Simulated scan of single mutants.
Amino acid sequence: MTNAQRIARIAGPSLVVLSITEALNLDAFAAITPPQVYLNGTILFVAGVSILQAHRSWSRDWQVLVTLAGWALLLAGLWRMIAPHAPQLGQGAGTDAVFILLIGVGAVLSFNGYRAERRP
């Protein structure tokens, strides 16, 4: 099993579940405080760095999603650490699009992480 598959087995289901539960509980994030945003950013940043330490591949297949997820987590975490007072996502079409995108990426990662390996 490759590092990409190992990471996909963790990141894929996590993205799907986190996206769905955050979409269902979006109103709970209206009262989030800057220290909570900063802490969330720190966690996202560390997750992104961890993924990029284990996998940095710019291939032309599904594995590039692992690298892109690592960079997205790193940059999102960095932004939340730099600007914890910035407005958070609210309800709207843009937020729904982000959740749909994350669920889709999570589904692709899950599928490729858990599918049976092909033997030559």
Rank of each mutant, 00 (worst) to 15 (best):
E22M: 13
L52I: 02
Q36P: 02
L65G: 02
G92V: 05
L15G: 09
A69N: 08
R56P: 06
R56C: 11
V37Y: 00
W79Y: 13
P87T: 07
Q88P: 00
P84D: 02
Q36E: 11
A72G: 14
G70W: 00
V16S: 13
A30H: 13
F45E: 03
W58I: 09
I82E: 08
A93K: 09
M81I: 05
L39T: 10
L18H: 05
P84I: 00
P34Y: 03
F29D: 12
P35Y: 06
L65C: 11
L89E: 07
S50V: 06
P87Y: 04
L44M: 05
A76Y: 04
G70T: 02
G90Q: 14
L68P: 01
R56I: 06
A23F: 03
Q91W: 06
A69P: 03
S50D: 07
Q36K: 06
A47V: 11
V16W: 05
S50P: 03
A30Q: 14
G70R: 03
G77K: 01
H55L: 02
G48N: 08
G92C: 07
S50W: 01
V49I: 02
L52H: 02
I43Q: 11
T21I: 09
V66I: 10
M81F: 07
L74G: 09
I43M: 15
I32M: 15
W71C: 15
P35L: 10
T33D: 13
E22N: 13
T33I: 05
A83R: 12
L68F: 07
W71K: 11
G41K: 00
H85S: 15
D61F: 03
T33L: 15
A86G: 07
L52V: 00
V64G: 07
G77Q: 01
M81L: 08
Q91C: 08
A83H: 12
T21Q: 10
A69T: 09
L24I: 09
A69V: 04
A54C: 08
P34G: 09
A93H: 10
G70Q: 05
A47Y: 02
T95W: 03
V17L: 15
V17R: 11
A28D: 13
V46E: 06
T95L: 02
Q36F: 01
S57T: 07
H55M: 04
Q36T: 07
D27V: 07
D27L: 12
D96N: 12
R60T: 09
